[in-house]
Structure formats: structure tokens, C-alpha cells
Amino acid sequence: MPGGGPEMDDYMETLKDEEDALWENVECNRHMLSRYINPAKLTPYLRQCKVIDEQDEDEVLNAPMLPSKINRAGRLLDILHTKGQRGYVVFLESLEFYYPELYKLVTGKEPTRRFSTIVVEEGHEGLTHFLMNEVIKLQQQMKAKDLQRCELLARLRQLEDEKKQMTLTRVELLTFQERYYKMKEERDSYNDELVKVKDDNYNLAMRYAQLSEEKNMAVMRSRDLQLEIDQLKHRLNKMEEECKLERNQSLKLKNDIENRPKKEQVLELERENEMLKTKNQELQSIIQAGKRSLPDSDKAILDILEHDRKEALEDRQELVNRIYNLQEEARQAEELRDKYLEEKEDLELKCSTLGKDCEMYKHRMNTVMLQLEEVERERDQAFHSRDEAQTQYSQCLIEKDKYRKQIRELEEKNDEMRIEMVRREACIVNLESKLRRLSKDSNNLDQSLPRNLPVTIISQDFGDASPRTNGQEADDSSTSEESPEDSKYFLPYHPPQRRMNLKGIQLQRAKS
């Protein structure tokens, strides 16, 4: 015994090295194993092979420090690593049964499904019991997946119906949107047309105001020219009257000059006056001389005659003075006559000038009245044309509004008919989907599995289990394997941990 101590140590070291070499393959693929292994699927088989106990299973599945599946799978690998070579062998058998691809990844061999460990530990009855539990578990999982698949199909059909409904609603909204954009385009076109009409109206108003201003300026210029013409006519008439007055005065002077006595007659009258003065002096001298030589009687007679002569001279002087006064009065009367005649001529000139001015103003008033009548006639014609244009424009607008209203009513009726057609199509689609759903539900009910399987069917299934373990590994792997896509769409199922009653199965096998 003492001599065998070193050999035992060498043997233990060799086993430990082999164990480390075995687990080295697992550690190399630890990331892939932790990512894809579900500990809840492996722990029943590991407990059946007595590699882990209930406490280890509870620690792996329910520990609060292991929230994710990767953490739980890593903890399970750590626990199996502590179990040595047996933990490695049982772990590979569980991978061979549940995850053939991972088994091939770790060992590089094809899975054979021999279950040597569980046969050694529990015997064939334990293997049968384990396989029966796994089959029931798989059936329950398949039923749950079928239910989930039916629910998802129903949800899918519902979503398809909602999608069709949303599509129809979208078509309806597109119809309304198209109608909205069309009405918006019509409104924009009408606004552009309105702005264009306003611009045209403004341009016409500006043109009309400009023409009116030009016409008023032309009328004012015409009036100024007419006033200048009238003033020139007035000056012409005044000059004609002055010329006529000057002509009359010149004719009067000419007549006075023609009626003036001649120079010879004046000289002859002056000679006669001198001769008479000479004779008068001679007679006076004779009379003076006679007075001195005459007697007293003759002197008395001469005195009487002288007195008579003096009286006659006085009378004559009075007559001469009277004649002079009369001549002066006649001259003054002639001057007054000439003055009055001049005033008369001036008044006649003024009267004729005023008459011509009156005629001029009368003509001017007639011209202004004619212009006013023409302006009123043009204004009435413009008003009439404007009223006709406004009436025609309003009539066109009324007809346009009428046609637009008819078009809008027809478009609304068309839209309502399209919407009604879309709604009826939606109703038809809904009815078809309901009919299809009812038909599929009836087919699913016919094809669904019963909840409680008979014992004979279970025994028959387990009677055929042994050949399947040898020759149909691919079928078992397809039913027991969970793909990543299934984990996305289906909830994980945790079967209840219970042991099955095998009395009925044993009785059935005894009868057979």
C-alpha cells in the first residue's frame, strides 16, 4: 500500500489531465453553448442521470443573480465542470439528445442517441419513463405552439383585415386629398384670375382717368384759346370803332377846312374895312368942321342928330352885343352839340362793343353748352356701355358659378359613389376574411389534438420509441430542437415537474 501511493497520485493526475482536456473543448465553445442552450431543457435529463440535484437545479433556474438565459447556462456549465468526467459525459449526452448541432460542434462527431448513462443509472424502465415524459412534454409544447400558431394566424388575419381596411381608408383619404388639391388648384386659379381682372380693371381705370385728364386739359386749352380769340375780336371791334371815330373827325375837319373863306376874300374885306374906317374919319372931320361953321339952329339939329346917332349907336351896340352873345351862345351850343355828338359816338361805340361782347359771350355760352351736351352725351354713352359690360360680366359670372356648381355637385356625387364603392369593397373584403377565418377555424378544430390522450396510444408510441432511437435521429431532433426563430415568436414553456403513473402502461404491456 505505501508503495502504491505514487502510482495512485500519477493516476489521479492523469485523470485530472484527461478531464481538463475534455472540458477544454467545452470551454472553447462556451460562448456558443451559453448563447443557445436552454438550461430548463437540460436539467431534467441531468437530474435523471443524478449529475445534479434539486438544489443545483433551483440555483440554475431560479437564482435572482442569474437574470438572463446566458448567465444560467454559464452557471450550469460551471456546476457540471465540478462534476468531473461524469458531468462531461452526461452533458454531451444531453447535447446529443437536445442540441445535435452543438454536440457536433463540441465533439466533431455525429449524434447517435445511445443514452448509456441513464440506462446504467435507471435501467430501461427509467429510460422509458424519461422518454415518455419527454414525449408528453413535446406534445404539450407542440399543442402550445399550435395554439400560439393559431392565435398568430388569427392575429395575422386580423392584421391583414386591418391592413385592407387601412388601405381602403388610405384610398378614401387619397380621394379626399386629391379632391382637396383640386379644389385648392381651382381656388388658386380663381385667385389668379381675380387678381388679373383687378389689374385689368385698375389699368382701365388709370387709362380712363388719364384720358379724362387729357380731355379736361384739352377742353381747358380750347376754352383759353376761345377766350383769347374773343379778346382779340373785342380788341378788333374796339379798334374798328376808334378808326371809324377818327375817320368821322377827319371828315369834319376836312369839311371845315373846305368851308373856310379864301385869302383873297379876307384881304378884300380888310380893304373894305380900311376904306370904311377912312371914310368914317373923313366924315367925322367934316362934321367937326361943320359944327364950327354952322348956326345955332343947325347946331341944335346936329345935337339932336348926334344924340339920335348916339342912341342909334347905343342901340346898335346893344344889338351887336346881343348878336355877339347870341353868337357866343350859338358857339357854345355848337360846342355842346359837338361834345354831345362825340359822347353819342362814344356811347354808340361802347354800345356796339357791348353788343359784340354780348354776342361773343352768347356764342361762347352756346359753345360751352354744346360742349357740355357733348360731354353729357359721352358720359351717358359711357355709363350705358359700362352698365352693359357689367350686366354681361355679371351674367357670365352667374353662368360660370352655375356651371361650377354643377361640376362641383357632379364631382361630389362621383366622390360619394367612389367612397360608397370603396366601403362596399371593404365590406366584401371583411365578409370574405370572416368566411375564410371561419373555414380555417373549423379546419383547425378538426385537426387539433385532444387534450387527454388514451393510455393505449401512449403505450403504442413508446413501443415504437426504441427503433426510432436507432434510425431516425433527424426526426427526433426536428421535433425536440428549438430554433432561434421559434424563440422569437413563441413563449418558452415550462412543464410541471411531476412523475407519471406507469401502472397503466405496465398492465397494457403485460396484456400485449
Rank of each mutant, 00 (worst) to 15 (best):
G5R: 12
M8Y: 10
D10W: 10
D10G: 13
D10Y: 10
Y11S: 11
E13K: 13
E13T: 13
T14I: 09
L15K: 12
K16G: 09
K16D: 10
D17F: 10
D17A: 14
E19Q: 13
E19W: 12
D20M: 10
D20L: 09
A21I: 09
A21W: 10
A21H: 09
E24W: 08
V26M: 09
E27N: 13
E27V: 06
C28D: 06
R30A: 00
H31T: 09
M32D: 12
M32I: 06
M32F: 10
S34R: 01
S34T: 14
R35N: 05
Y36L: 09
Y36E: 01
N38S: 08
A40S: 09
A40Q: 03
K41W: 08
T43Y: 00
L46M: 09
L46T: 02
L46Y: 10
L46D: 01
L46V: 02
R47A: 02
R47N: 02
C49Q: 15
K50N: 08
V51C: 05
D53W: 03
D53K: 04
Q55F: 11
Q55L: 06
E57S: 03
E57Q: 01
E57H: 00
E59G: 00
V60Y: 07
V60H: 03
V60R: 00
V60K: 00
N62C: 15
L66S: 00
P67E: 00
P67I: 10
P67M: 14
S68G: 00
S68D: 03
I70S: 04
N71R: 12
N71I: 08
A73K: 01
A73S: 09
A73Y: 00
A73R: 01
L76S: 04
L76R: 01
L77Q: 04
L77S: 02
D78P: 01
D78R: 02
T82P: 05
K83L: 04
G84M: 03
G84E: 06
G84S: 08
Q85C: 08
Q85V: 07
R86Q: 14
Y88M: 12
F91S: 03
L92Q: 02
E96N: 04
E101D: 05
Y103I: 00
K104I: 10
L105V: 03
E110T: 07
E110I: 07
E110D: 10
P111H: 07
P111L: 02
T112V: 15
F115S: 14
S116V: 06
T117L: 09
T117N: 15
I118T: 15
V119K: 15
E121Y: 05
E122F: 04
E122A: 05
G123I: 15
H124I: 12
G126S: 15
T128Q: 08
T128L: 15
T128Y: 09
F130H: 10
L131V: 06
M132R: 07
N133H: 15
E134L: 15
E134W: 15
V135K: 05
V135E: 01
I136T: 11
L138D: 06
L138H: 08
Q139F: 08
Q139I: 14
Q139N: 12
M142C: 14
M142E: 07
K143G: 08
A144P: 10
A144T: 12
A144S: 12
K145H: 09
